[in-house]
Design a protein around this nucleic acid. Structure first.
Length: 155
DNA sequence: GCCAACGTTGGC
DNA sequence: GCCAACGTTGGC
């Protein structure tokens, strides 16, 4: 099975790549979108590489790398009444939401901003810059992944 | 803070 | 199964 590449969005006020670095690994819970869930459940494999993207912040863009360290397990926040991700339609007998575990890999030398991605012709097909694209987990081609990594390197 | 675009819900 | 109403996402 070939390795796959992903872009995962997070609001740094909620969970940033620095947070991930501190705790090394984290379950990517709280996803409540079926398309994003299906990527985690069906397509993400251990070892897949992840572009860690910060949204809703001053400088939006890709800040570093992570990798999938565990395939999808039940997202326990769906059963937790006190969690903001609680889903009353889910039950331990009929779970609805799943999440993968993500492991910190590295910070980029410098972030690759959304602006730069938009300005880079070779990245024009990246989902993150398509109009109206709100998916928090998106597939990325190896080519796009490599280009973004290259752009992050300081000269 | 605004609002366009999108996904989900629920009445019919 | 349609679609209006609503809630959310996320760039600006």
């Amino acid at each position: 099975m070939a390795k796959k590449y992903w872009l995962m969005k997070s609001e740094p006020d909620v969970f940033s790549i620095d947070d991930l670095k501190k705790i090394k690994r984290d379950l990517w819970d709280g996803v409540r979108n079926y398309q994003a869930r299906n990527f985690m459940m069906r397509e993400m494999k251990v070892g897949d590489e992840v572009l860690f993207y910060h949204s809703n912040t001053k400088l939006m863009g890709v800040y570093g790398l992570a990798r999938i360290s565990k395939e999808a397990v039940e997202d326990l926040t769906q059963f937790d009444k006190k969690s903001k991700y609680f889903d009353e339609k889910a039950s331990p007998e009929r779970p609805r939401w799943y999440c993968v575990e993500v492991e910190y890999k590295a910070h980029f030398d410098r972030p690759v901003s959304l602006q730069e991605i938009k300005e880079t012709k070779a990245l024009k097909d990246m989902l993150v810059i398509q109009k109206g694209q709100r998916l928090s987990i998106q597939p990325v081609t190896k080519k796009e992944f490599d280009i973004v990594c290259k752009m992050s390197k300081l000269p």
